[in-house]
Amino acid sequence: MAEGLRERKKRETRQRISDIATALFVEHGFVTVTIAEVADAADVSVNTVYNYFPAKEDLFLDRSKDVVHRLARWVRGRDAGESAVAAVLRELREEVETVSPRVGLTKDYERFLKVIHEAPPLRSRLWSIAQEVQENLEAALREETGAPADDPMPTLIAGQINWLHQTVMGVIGREMVAGRNPDEVSREVLVLIDDMEGLLSEKVLNYAVRGAE
């Protein structure tokens, strides 16, 4: 029980530091705010901040670990009779239909993107995250299909799936920055997802169909 309490306290401390850092970055800019200022505002030492967040970028992009595994997780969790692309389309539609903040459908997303736009280190980190997303997805596809290392199909299908995800995220980000209502954007993006699905070939749509258990 004591171990559980310690872990919970660590999670709470980590979250508090991240929330305080994010508020400072939004108000003053990512480049301007120092780790020392974050530590002071959170009433912890600089070393404590670094214990939880190895790099300054991690403070703002604290949820990146979930993002880099998102598509691979959706593919691995596909239903029986469902292909890899179908699983991702289903999950994307659900996130968009429920107006989920996880895909940026929140008015706060404009402030988040503004901080990134003004900070080259964050833009660089986002590029790295995008690479990780595709690499993890390709690895999942290769593992799920048993494809050999010289088979290009997992690479090609990962690119198609990543295109779906990146396009949805890009359009949502653009509309949120424009001050649009999340509910309206949600409805429009659902139509966009249908349009994108219509552009995919049967070979892509039927890749990595999960057999019956």
Rank of each mutant, 00 (worst) to 15 (best):
P148V: 15
A2D: 14
T145D: 04
A72L: 03
A208M: 09
G170H: 06
I172N: 03
A2G: 08
R78K: 04
E82W: 14
R142I: 12
A130Y: 02
E118Q: 13
M176E: 01
K65H: 15
G4S: 08
D183H: 10
K114F: 04
Q160F: 06
D183E: 15
G77E: 11
L122W: 07
H28Q: 15
A41F: 13
R78N: 02
V171P: 07
A39V: 02
E143I: 10
V177M: 13
L113F: 08
Q131D: 13
R142C: 12
T34F: 04
P101W: 10
G104S: 03
E197W: 09
I20E: 11
E110N: 02
G104A: 06
V31C: 10
D19I: 12
A80L: 10
R174C: 09
A23H: 09
L205N: 03
L141S: 00
I116V: 14
H69K: 09
V46M: 10
Q160S: 05
I20L: 14
V26D: 12
R16K: 08
E110A: 11
L122Q: 06
A55C: 09
T13C: 01
E7F: 05
G173T: 03
A149F: 14
R174M: 09
I116K: 00
L61D: 10
E97S: 15
V191N: 08
D195S: 05
E95N: 05
R78E: 00
E213I: 13
T32N: 09
Q131P: 05
I193C: 04
A55M: 11
L113I: 04
A139D: 12
G170K: 02
R210F: 14
M176K: 00
L59D: 09
L113N: 02
L105C: 04
E27Y: 12
L105W: 00
L59Q: 08
G159T: 01
R76A: 03
M1E: 10
Y52V: 05
R11V: 08
M169V: 06
V49Q: 07
E118H: 10
E143D: 15
E3G: 03
G198S: 04
T34M: 03
A42S: 14
D19E: 12
K56Y: 14
T32M: 05
D79Q: 15
G146K: 08
T155E: 11
F60Y: 15
P101V: 10
R16P: 04
I129M: 08
H69D: 12
A39E: 10
V49F: 01
L113A: 04
E12M: 12
D195V: 10
E37A: 05
V33F: 14
K9G: 02
V46E: 12
Q166L: 13
L105Y: 01
I172R: 02
V103H: 02
R63S: 14
A147R: 09
I172K: 00
V75W: 00
E175H: 06
E57G: 03
